[in-house]
Simulated scan of single mutants.
Amino acid sequence: MVQAKTELRTRARELRRAGRTYDEIVAELGVSKSSVSLWVRDLPRPRASPERMHAMREARWAPYRAFRDRTRKEAREAAEREIGTLTDRELFLIGVGLYWAEGAKSKPYRRSEEIAFVNSDPGMIQVFLAWLTLLGVEPERRRFRVMIHDSADVAGAERFWADLVGGDVADFGKTTLKRHNPKTVRKNVGADYRGCLVVRVRQGADLYRRVEGWWYGIVGASVRSK
């Protein structure tokens, strides 16, 4: 009995020196907390390891994050239901605003009347393509090309965008690879990074001029409505 207690005391001290807490020692040895306190009280309190500190922070903030994520999800789903079904006119106006905000535009110092849209958001691409369909732009007039950092999963990104637009990678233009600068700390990394998709419309000069007119028509109408 005495030998067993001595062995437990020795083991408790070893565990304490290894950085274990009272509760962890109690759980491992199956003894009372008062016994552990008596055996190791002369030893300095161990400093928490970075791993333990991280685990403690995670345990503390996990409920808050779960509540935040749940609240965010509920708000997004409620807002999504508010949209309902789009009329053709609503999609038309959305598309004009979307293009004028994100699409290529002619400049006084560089005249270039073409329809070209570049974006990394799959949803933006889907809305833009639905808008082109509404305007009667045939699939044969649409051209696609991927722009992405050369350090990313290029083939995977090409497949993703091809699946999204309902096409084939072989029908895409040559992918533009952006050289990675090791000195730059990029945030757009990981499995969700797929670069950008470039969508161009062949023979799009006339459509560009109409989009420009539609946009300024929206601007004028909004000013008059005040």
Rank of each mutant, 00 (worst) to 15 (best):
S49N: 00
R202K: 15
S151I: 10
F172Q: 06
L15H: 05
R194N: 04
R111Q: 14
R200P: 03
E7G: 01
G217A: 14
T71L: 12
R52W: 01
S106T: 15
D23N: 13
I125M: 11
Q3R: 10
G84E: 02
T133E: 15
V219D: 07
V189C: 02
A101C: 13
I83W: 11
R76T: 12
G166P: 08
I148V: 08
A104Y: 13
R202H: 07
L132R: 10
E80W: 06
A12C: 06
M124D: 01
K178L: 08
V154A: 05
V26W: 03
E138Q: 10
K73I: 10
K183M: 03
R60H: 06
S120M: 11
D150A: 11
R186G: 07
R143S: 11
Y109K: 12
V201G: 11
R159Y: 06
K105A: 02
S151N: 09
R159A: 14
S37T: 03
S222R: 14
V96C: 04
E90L: 06
E80H: 13
V146N: 04
I25L: 09
V189S: 12
V118W: 04
A12H: 08
D168H: 00
E158T: 13
S222H: 11
E77A: 13
D192R: 09
T21F: 10
L43F: 07
K33I: 01
Q3I: 10
N181D: 15
G217C: 09
F160D: 02
N188L: 09
F128Q: 09
G220H: 15
R76N: 12
R20L: 13
N181M: 05
T175I: 05
W39H: 05
K178G: 06
M56P: 01
N181W: 08
V223I: 15
T176K: 00
G213C: 10
K187F: 05
L91V: 03
L129T: 12
A55I: 10
H180K: 08
V185Y: 03
S34K: 01
L134D: 08
K178M: 00
P182G: 12
V36L: 00
W214R: 07
L134N: 02
K226G: 15
R143D: 09
R110T: 08
K105M: 08
P63Q: 11
I125E: 02
V127Y: 05
K5D: 01
P122R: 00
I148P: 08
V154E: 02
W214E: 15
F172M: 12
E14R: 13
Y216W: 15
R41S: 05
V189M: 08
T175E: 03
S37L: 01
M124R: 00
G204E: 00
L15W: 08
I148C: 04
R72A: 15
T133Q: 13
K226E: 15
A4I: 04
R145G: 07
D171W: 06
E77M: 14
T6D: 06
W61I: 14
R224S: 15
T6W: 00
D153Y: 09
R210I: 14
R110I: 09
S35P: 03
L164F: 00
D153R: 03
A27E: 15
E7M: 03
G156H: 10
R179P: 01
R20F: 13
R13V: 11
L132H: 04
V169K: 00
A59P: 05
K33E: 06
K73C: 07
D121P: 08
S49T: 14
V211F: 15
